[in-house]
Computed example of a mutant assay.
Amino acid sequence: MKIHIVKIGGHLINDQKVLNFSLKAFCQLQGYKVLIHGGGRKADFISNKMGILQKIIKGRRITDKETLDIVVMTYAGMINKNIVALLQSHHCNALGLCGADGNCIKSYLRKKTNIDYGYVGDINSKSINTRLIKFLLKNNIIPVLCSITHNGIGNLLNTNADTIAAYIAISLAKEKDCETELHFCFEKKGVLRDIQDPESFFQKINFNSFQKMKQNHSITNGMIPKLENAFFALKNGVSQVSIGLPNYLNDVNNKTLLCP
């Protein structure tokens, strides 16, 4: 079975009309599919309204107890259920989940190094409940997963949505009857050559090019973990990885394709 793993984030989630259009494009994608979403900008907006300052280091959120409550409420509640409702309006039967539901994604607390990320969960090759995901897919139910995981001892943890998407694609690719494609969708056409020019996207990027881009600081902090996860997936059995707009999910010429 061929499975499309699609992660949406950024401005696609903030604007209801854009989100609805994006999900319509997702529903038109043929075959089995899984949707993963973040929602960091929405969480920032809610945090600011509540007067709670957010800390981001190298594109990754520091999650203290107050921030954890906000992201659980925002990701697993408001955003997740809104996405499921919109998918149902496009006749895509979906089920919204966080990592604790059905033991879908089990994580472990990130070890403290020189940076204390707080209540952040990391995952590995054993974290994903592929049996549950395949069961849902074979029963024509689209899993919609937010970036909240659990550690198995009663704690919810904030986990990077790009990382979740990569590990789901990798874990399913290891199943004998599965082939996976991974799509990172956001508001740009792809990875941009020039951040000021939205039309200047790379059609293809290999790992060496990515390393050079990091060294000369030609990509933003938020794009670095996305590309790291993308190349990690490509090196671990995922057949194709792309980055771009959701309306080009079926068009290989209008997004950035990753090459080894």
Rank of each mutant, 00 (worst) to 15 (best):
M1Q: 06
K7L: 02
G9N: 09
I13H: 06
Q16N: 14
K24W: 06
C27L: 03
L35V: 02
L35Q: 10
I36E: 07
H37A: 02
H37F: 08
G38L: 11
R41A: 04
K42S: 12
A43D: 13
F45C: 07
I46P: 02
S47N: 14
K49Q: 15
K49M: 11
M50S: 06
M50L: 15
L53S: 15
L53F: 13
L53P: 12
Q54F: 01
K55R: 12
K58P: 02
G59E: 09
G59T: 08
G59V: 07
I62E: 03
I62Q: 04
T63Q: 05
T63S: 08
D64A: 08
E66Y: 11
T67L: 11
D69Y: 09
I70M: 08
I70H: 06
M73E: 15
A76H: 04
A76F: 01
G77R: 10
G77Q: 13
M78G: 01
I79C: 01
N80S: 12
N80H: 07
K81T: 07
V84L: 03
A85L: 10
Q88M: 06
Q88H: 14
S89T: 10
C92E: 14
A94K: 12
L97Q: 03
G99M: 07
G102L: 04
C104M: 13
C104A: 13
K106I: 04
S107K: 02
S107I: 00
Y108N: 13
Y108S: 14
T113G: 15
N114V: 08
Y117M: 10
Y117G: 01
Y117V: 02
V120E: 04
G121C: 08
I123Y: 01
N124Q: 05
K126V: 00
S127F: 05
L132H: 00
K134V: 00
K134E: 05
L137V: 00
N140D: 03
N140E: 08
I142P: 00
S147V: 08
S147Y: 09
I148H: 07
H150W: 14
L156K: 14
L157Q: 03
T159M: 11
N160E: 09
N160Q: 10
D162R: 13
D162M: 09
A166E: 14
A173Y: 02
C178E: 09
T180S: 07
L182G: 10
H183R: 11
F184K: 05
G190F: 08
G190N: 09
L192S: 01
D197N: 15
Q203T: 14
K204V: 05
I205M: 15
F207S: 02
N208C: 00
S209C: 00
K212V: 02
M213G: 01
M213L: 14
M213E: 03
N216S: 09
N216V: 03
H217M: 11
P225N: 04
K226M: 09
K226V: 06
N229W: 01
N229M: 04
N229E: 10
F231G: 02
F232P: 07
A233R: 09
L234I: 02
G237N: 09
V238Q: 02
S239Y: 05
V241Q: 03
S242C: 14
S242N: 10
I243N: 03
I243W: 04
I243Y: 01
P246A: 01
P246M: 06
Y248E: 06
N253C: 11
L257I: 12
L258C: 02
